[in-house]
Simulated scan of single mutants.
Amino acid sequence: MSISNMLASFFRLHVVIRLLIIIMGVLFIFGSLAHLIEPEVFPTIFDGLWWAIVTTSTVGYGDLVPQSPLGKVLAVFLILAGAGFVTFYMAQLSKHVIEAQNAARDGQMTFNGKNHIIIVGWNTRTKNIIQHIQTKAKNISIVLIDGTVKNNPIHSNKVHFIKGDSTQDKTLRQANITFASTLLITADQNKNELQADMHSVLTLIAAKGIHPNIYAITEILTTDQINNAWRAGADEVMESNMFLSHVMTNSLLERGMADIVMLLLDQLHGDKFSFQTIDDKWIGKTFHVAAAHFLGEHKVLIGIKRSKECYVNPSISFVIEKDDSFILIEH
């Protein structure tokens, strides 16, 4: 490798690494000179290097001290040059640590983890979701993407913040979406319903374009955009407005129903509510037979999921088919 290539490679290194290499080189040169000038005081190059490190760090043990005038002149130059380099290095190191902390806080730092969850959009729902995840799965890393907040709204070492537009490849790659396990896209509360849904669908398209196999859950507000979300590759579509409409309607017709629904949802969060893919032995059997079986295992069978349809509390003669899933409540 030519000298010009070596210099080019050196200058491509991070400034802190370059400074460290320079300092070690300067210390080695002064240590070697001390050994050559006063071999009786510094019997080995290591002794000279030890003296140079102790001197530049301003520790000054005094176990090795140059005796000759030339050795003392060398010490003066070491103090002026070496100590200056070390001080400058520590200042640069502190600067880069602070810059890294600020970048992480302001959402400018790239996430390098794997098997993480990406959540798009900051709102009250997102806050509650993150709190529930951290309660149930403390080791899961979460990347929050939002372009409206100034810095990370969650103070946790398991929540990494990316500030930016979730429809842009740059932002998604900054969240390391290629190695993410799950993507949750929440509706943007700063837009009207149609604009929020269009933004969610665009985010979904961008995400699936980079990582086609990521499991994507998308919140959709308007009925007209549901099919677009499915076409864009959503694995689950959540119609939050439809859900709230059902709850409000039931409350109007049956007073107190909203409280019951919220209590049920609070009880069913986490691992109490689950899907179970059926074994072949259940094909052709009735819902009644399956429900009786699971009661013996202290589980309540409340319905059957078939493709994109759910049958809650079907008739006891409802026949189980291939590729169905059980909807269970576990104790």
Rank of each mutant, 00 (worst) to 15 (best):
V247Y: 00
D146Y: 06
T222L: 14
L70E: 03
L252W: 10
I23A: 03
S9V: 01
G284K: 11
A100Q: 15
H132D: 12
I53L: 13
V247N: 01
D146Q: 07
N115I: 01
N213L: 08
F294W: 11
R125A: 13
I23K: 02
A234T: 06
N190P: 00
I23G: 06
G284V: 08
R231I: 08
Y89T: 13
P43L: 01
A196K: 06
D63R: 11
S166W: 02
I154Q: 06
G303Q: 00
M109F: 11
V86I: 15
I3Y: 14
S325P: 01
L244P: 07
N157S: 12
S307C: 09
L253E: 15
I130M: 04
I316E: 15
N157C: 06
L221K: 08
F243W: 07
H35F: 04
L194A: 07
Q108C: 03
F326W: 07
H298W: 08
H132Q: 15
L328Y: 14
V143C: 00
R173K: 13
Y89C: 02
S141R: 13
I130H: 07
A291F: 09
A75G: 03
N313L: 11
S2R: 10
K299D: 10
S166L: 06
T178F: 00
G48Q: 00
T223K: 10
V54N: 11
H160A: 05
L33D: 01
L204I: 02
N227L: 12
E309Q: 14
W122N: 08
N151V: 13
M1T: 12
H96T: 15
V149E: 14
K150R: 13
M109G: 08
V261F: 07
V237Q: 07
E297K: 14
G71M: 08
A232M: 03
Q225D: 09
L204T: 04
V65T: 06
